[in-house]
């Protein structure tokens, strides 16, 4: 979707429709007549009926519109940058982070700290990973630089906590292993483009 329609600020050329509103009465008689007409037209009951109908829908037909925050939350745009999440590989369940340290390097508020080690399987393992949310400015660079889409911004936008600077650990941010099937792919900055497949160049294999 282009941005052209938002850039067009020439109001007169847009398709506005003039509503057919009646004129406000100017004489006392006119006002009296309007009151009498509205009273006996039973418009009050129209309004009460709407309320009644919505109440019935909500209570008996399960069409409640009230969001019971904080128990319920509205979906948020994938581009919204809230508290980070650490994703897992869908195939193996192993966390995606390879410990490359790019997020730590790019972080402009220096809130990411990590330690890595050489593990028993001769792989680089993230032994410690913390984000100081008291410092984080949610710029999204970490998610954008991550080569593995391992660190992403999730939809959890409540950043209030008991302490001004509370630390978040790797485990807190990591998708729980039993909720792996609910893990959403990230569509925000740094995500794979929809046409990524077209851009892949294959390595030649002579054998």
């Amino acid at each position: 979707m282009g941005l052209e329609q938002f850039k067009n600020r020439n109001v007169g050329q847009q398709n506005y429709v003039m509503l057919d509103l009646e004129h406000t009465p100017e004489t006392g008689m006119g006002k009296f007549r309007q009151v009498v007409r509205r009273t006996f037209k039973a418009e009050l009951f129209v309004g009460l009926w709407v309320t009644m109908r919505e109440m019935i829908n909500a209570l008996f037909k399960g069409q409640m519109h009230t969001v019971k925050y904080p128990f319920e939350k509205l979906p948020i745009s994938p581009r919204y940058r809230a508290i980070h999440e650490m994703l897992r590989l869908l195939e193996s369940g192993h966390y995606r982070c390879i410990g490359c340290g790019l997020c730590e390097k790019i972080c402009i508020s220096n809130c990411i700290t990590m330690d890595t080690r050489y593990d028993e399987n001769q792989r680089k393992e993230v032994s410690e990973y913390t984000i100081n949310f008291g410092r984080c400015i949610f710029c999204g660079y970490c998610a954008e630089v991550c080569p593995e889409l391992a660190i992403v911004h999730g939809p959890r936008y409540e950043t209030a906590s008991e302490q001004r600077a509370s630390f978040s650990l790797f485990e807190d941010m990591l998708t729980p292993i039993d909720k792996l099937n609910l893990q959403q792919e990230y569509d925000g900055f740094g995500a794979v483009t929809p046409n990524a497949d077209e851009n892949i160049k294959k390595t030649p294999l002579a054998y």
Binding site: E104, K105, R117, E125
Partner: peptide
């Protein structure tokens, strides 16, 4: 170096 391996990036 085995002790250094995977503990830190050079630029840090």
């Amino acid at each position: 170096s085995t002790a250094f391996k995977y503990t830190s990036n050079a630029w840090e």
